[in-house]
Amino acid sequence: MALSNVWFTLAAVLVVIASPAKANSNDVFNFALNLECLEGQFYSYAAYAEFARDEVAHLAFLRRTAGAAAVPCPQINIGSSFDTIIQAALESRAGNSVFSPYDNDVNFLLSAFLFEDLGVTAFAGAIPVLTGGDAQEAAAGILGVEAYHGGLLRQWLFENGDLVVQPYGIQVVSFVQALSDLRGKVGGGKDQGITIPAAVASYYGPNILGFFQANIVPTDSDAKIFARTPKEVLAIAYGGDATKPGAFFPSGVNGNIK
């Protein structure tokens, strides 16, 4: 190899190392497609309301955008997966109860809380690695909708924070904090409940809603939303370990990003 070619190759390597990593847009959209398959199925099983329409529209858009490269929906567990997550979040407080998102409205909205914040942080992590303005604009548009969903859910959960989730005997605000703590533990430490930390210091015991201070918008110190990597997203969706499919995706996700 000529010396000039050696220097050219070395320069190219250095450019790649120095530049932010970029990803194939179809790979990123296919990763997102897995999450939209999960959300679309979850909402559609309950009632075909606005959230369901949004998620189904997201799914259709991602398929249309990826074209022939679009992956099929993966195997999804909407049944026992929720109980697995709740058991992990509540630990000994879960008792022998079996959690289902479709038993009542409170359970359903608590379950939706699991997904919506996850979707926002996933798209926030995807936008910087997408190539091209069109792809980034599309991801930002979906992120915005997921953030609206998440904000509405967090507001409702906060306003009804003193309701007791049965049969656990745990207030909604404390239940949410337990779910947030679990997401933070396995998902890169990036999560917040619906109250400021000082207000939930004693969340293992009874709380009085009047003392809570709202945290409807989870942000970092610069008031920006958190961004998660694919591995951090999968660690939550798989129930704790990004390398071991389980929970909502018992056979893993489809596509090149895993």
Rank of each mutant, 00 (worst) to 15 (best):
A198L: 05
V16I: 13
I196P: 00
Q136C: 10
N26S: 15
S44N: 12
V233N: 10
C37M: 08
F115G: 09
D83F: 03
E137C: 03
V56S: 11
L59R: 13
F212S: 04
S44I: 01
E39C: 06
A227V: 04
G125Q: 07
E55L: 06
E159F: 03
L163C: 00
D134M: 11
V28R: 08
L143D: 06
R228E: 04
I236R: 02
A11V: 01
T243R: 12
Y203T: 00
G246Q: 05
E137V: 13
T9H: 11
L62R: 12
G133K: 11
R63I: 12
G184Q: 01
L114M: 13
A46T: 02
I216Y: 09
F99V: 02
Q75K: 15
G240V: 04
G144S: 15
F99Y: 13
L130D: 11
P167T: 03
S221V: 05
G188T: 04
S4L: 12
S25P: 05
T84F: 10
P74W: 06
L14N: 03
G40K: 11
F211D: 14
V129W: 02
R183I: 00
T195V: 12
V71R: 14
S97I: 02
T84Y: 08
S81P: 04
A32M: 14
L182Y: 15
V172M: 07
Q75R: 14
C73W: 11
R154W: 00
G210N: 08
V120C: 12
A52H: 04
P245W: 06
L209D: 02
V176A: 11
S19E: 07
A201V: 06
Q87R: 14
P128I: 10
S80P: 00
D181R: 04
F248N: 03
A122Y: 08
A198T: 03
E36P: 10
N96V: 00
L152K: 11
R53E: 12
F175A: 06
F82V: 01
L38V: 09
V233D: 09
A66F: 07
H58R: 11
C37S: 08
A18Q: 12
H149E: 08
A23Q: 14
S80G: 04
I170L: 13
H149A: 05
A2L: 13
N96Y: 00
L130W: 07
G132C: 11
Q87V: 08
I78F: 12
K190F: 05
P128R: 08
F249V: 07
N24P: 01
A199T: 04
A12S: 14
A140E: 12
V106R: 09
D191N: 14
E116P: 06
V106T: 15
D83Y: 02
N160A: 07
L110V: 01
P20I: 05
Q171K: 08
L62S: 10
Y48L: 14
K224N: 15
E55W: 02
F115C: 02
V120M: 10
V13G: 05
N256T: 13
G141V: 05
A198K: 08
A21T: 13
A60G: 04
I236W: 02
A135E: 09
T121H: 05
G239K: 08
S174N: 15
L179H: 01
L152Y: 00
P72W: 03
I216S: 05
G252A: 12
G187W: 04
A69Q: 13
P245L: 14
S180G: 13
A147T: 06
L33M: 13
V253T: 13
A201E: 09
P245D: 09
